[in-house]
Amino acid sequence: TLIFFPIDNKDSLGIDQLRRAVEQCARDDKSVLQEVSIRWMAFLDSILSKREESAYLTFVDEVKALGTNARIPYAREQIQALAFFHARGFLIHMTSTEILKNIVVINPQWLIDTLSKVICDGNIHIDFQEFKTVGLAEDVISTFETALTSRDFLEYVWKGELVEFFIDLMKRTMLLSEWGRDSYLIPSLLRDTYMIPETGIAGHRCVYYFSSGFLPNGVFQRLLCLCVELSSRNGGNTNLKLYENFASIELDQGSP
């Protein structure tokens, strides 16, 4: 039995099987039977009706007003409703920080398009001459050769729109970690690989074996973000060795 659904986009093979599997999962999910207030549904409809106008809404200036119009005047219930809509995939609303909490994303493709301006193949998607013209030649080279990007680079590619939101989002989803002042590490852009020796790695080691499976793409990079963040807090990120497949990090100063 396959653990995935093979799809042929050209001939549409496999799509019907995938659709039936999704429908069956929806029927088996008891949460779909949860009763929802008509006011909440009106609230959701009013939010999604704004998709043609914007990819996101601000909670303080826009969503609260829509909630009041839907007879949900209190912010606490509005937050509960947004959490429910988020869990069902109607919108994206993260609440771990005040910056994230104030943005309600109603067009997820906008998020993907914006993040892919940074997390991409620089040789294919980046016009290096453009960045040289605006004085960001060193920034773009650093971003795609060492995975260290600058605040100026992010400001430029995101056109100054919601920069703090996207930095916060990437931090919380472990796609980015701070690296000194106004610099950031994006582990998924690391390209150099390291030939790992059988012995001779100094310091304490933590080894995971995936003999009966595999490590999903992106897990190592996210773990790297957490380790770099911890190292930075403890004053130990002065002698890091970072590669696409290997990292040597001093998590606590003086303790490699």
Results as ranks from 00 to 15, higher is better:
Phe166Ile: 03
Val157Ala: 09
Tyr156Thr: 04
Asn217Cys: 05
Phe214Cys: 05
Gly203Arg: 01
Gln221Ala: 13
Trp179Pro: 09
Arg172Gln: 15
Tyr194Arg: 12
Leu169Val: 06
Phe165Thr: 02
Ser188Cys: 13
Ile167Cys: 04
Met170His: 14
Asp127Met: 00
Val219Trp: 05
Phe210Lys: 11
Val157Phe: 01
Tyr209Gly: 14
Tyr156Ile: 09
Asn217Leu: 15
Pro197Trp: 00
Glu161Asp: 02
Met195Tyr: 11
Ile126Phe: 11
Arg181Cys: 01
Leu223Lys: 12
Leu154Arg: 05
Tyr184Phe: 15
Phe153Thr: 10
Leu175Lys: 07
Gly218Ile: 08
Trp158Met: 07
Tyr156Cys: 01
Leu215Tyr: 11
Thr193Asn: 11
Tyr208Arg: 10
Ala147Leu: 03
Leu148Glu: 11
Ile141Met: 00
Leu176Gly: 03
Ala137Cys: 12
Pro187His: 02
Leu190Lys: 03
Asp182Asn: 14
Val219Glu: 05
Glu155Phe: 02
Arg151Ile: 10
Asp127Gly: 02
Asp127Cys: 10
Gly213Thr: 09
Val207Lys: 13
Ser183His: 14
Ala137Leu: 07
Thr146Glu: 09
Gly200Ala: 05
Ser211Phe: 06
Tyr209Cys: 06
Asp192Glu: 03
Val134Phe: 13
Ile126Glu: 04
Ser150Gln: 08
Glu138Val: 09
Pro216Met: 05
His204Asp: 13
Gly213Arg: 00
Asp182Phe: 09
Asp168Trp: 00
Ala147Asp: 07
Arg205Glu: 15
Glu229Gly: 04
Leu224Ala: 01
Thr146Trp: 03
Ser212Phe: 04
Asp127His: 08
Asp168Met: 14
Leu224Trp: 10
Lys132Thr: 12
Val228Cys: 07
Tyr194Pro: 08
Ser212Ala: 02
Ile167Arg: 11
Asn217His: 15
Gly200Pro: 05
Glu138Gly: 03
Arg172Glu: 09
Asp139Trp: 06
Glu145Pro: 02
Leu185Met: 13
Glu145Leu: 13
Asp152His: 11
Ala147Gly: 03
Glu198Thr: 09
Cys206Ser: 14
Ser150Asp: 04
Ser188Arg: 01
Met170Asp: 07
Arg181Ser: 07
Thr173Lys: 06
Phe131Leu: 14
Leu162Thr: 09
Leu175Thr: 02
Phe128Pro: 10
Thr173Pro: 06
Leu176Asp: 01
Cys227His: 05
Tyr184Pro: 12
Trp158Gln: 03
Thr143Ala: 01
Leu148Tyr: 12
Gln221Ser: 05
Ala137Glu: 09
Leu223Ser: 15
Glu130Cys: 01
Leu223Thr: 06
Ala147Asn: 08
Ile196Arg: 08
Pro187Asp: 06
Thr193Met: 04
Asp152Met: 08
Ser177Gln: 11
Met174Gly: 12
Met195Ala: 07
Arg172Asn: 10
Arg172Leu: 11
Phe144Glu: 06
Lys171Pro: 07
Arg191Lys: 04
Gly160Asn: 07
Glu164Pro: 12
Tyr156Asn: 08
Arg181Gly: 14
Phe210Asn: 14
Phe210His: 08
Thr146Gly: 01
Ser142Gly: 02
Met170Glu: 10
Phe131Ala: 12
